[in-house]
Write a protein that binds this DNA or RNA. Sequence first.
DNA 1: TTAACATGGTTTCATATCGATACCAAGGAG
DNA 2: CTCCTTGGTATCGATATGAAACCATGTTAA
Lengths: 119, 119
Amino acid sequence: MEYDVYIQTCPTRMVLDRLADKWAVLVLGRLDDKPVRFNQLKREIDGISQKVLSQVLKKLERDGLVSRKVFATVPVTVEYAITPLGRTLTATVDALRRWAEDNIETVLAAQQKYDRAAD
Amino acid sequence: MEYDVYIQTCPTRMVLDRLADKWAVLVLGRLDDKPVRFNQLKREIDGISQKVLSQVLKKLERDGLVSRKVFATVPVTVEYAITPLGRTLTATVDALRRWAEDNIETVLAAQQKYDRAAD
DNA sequence: TTAACATGGTTTCATATCGATACCAAGGAG
DNA sequence: CTCCTTGGTATCGATATGAAACCATGTTAA
């Protein structure tokens, strides 16, 4: 069986679509160290809405990258953790975040140059 | 100056949003070897529309990751190539694609297990 | 000669996804 | 009795997306 993300109907394309997502990258980055609860994630990932966070977590859980654990406290506590499979991915998504932080000044300079040239 | 992708207004967040995108990953992957023309990219990236391809290329060019070169042939030829800055990123986005291709079977198994459990 | 196809786009429009907000149940604190 | 917490879901308007048509220019096929 041949898999190729450049073919639209290949299942790898759907996986890439899930991973190549701003929110998925940020969620996986936060879960890398330790399990985190829902509302703590929401507070730490500035700008994410409750709806989108719950959707992203559900999809990551379905893909086997994140596990969900409910504690019968009051109010109920839900803890999300990265799975062994998810852990094989964190180095890669971390690299994306680091690239953005390391090269932001170069990118901003390129944008300004591009925008000036378009006068 | 402190940059942090977890802060909504940080410019790194916008860069991450651009890179953490299915189409951007696929475009950068195709340009890694050699410059490619617009319609060749469109043919090779199965399922991308002309509009989205031109938008993605424009944004990647603005960010300084891709360069655009017009040749005065008939009909006009437009060639897109990766820049030195873009090249510092290709290893990372390649890793994302490779992860998807290497782990697809594990992910598909996890999805089936999740879906069965939800019956 | 006229129709079709190539180039690299932009425009249009209908739909899908997004984010903000409100709402929910269940209980603790004031 | 009301507000706050937990972890969500429901609703709704704004935004982004994808399919398709359109554009100019010129070459080739019928």
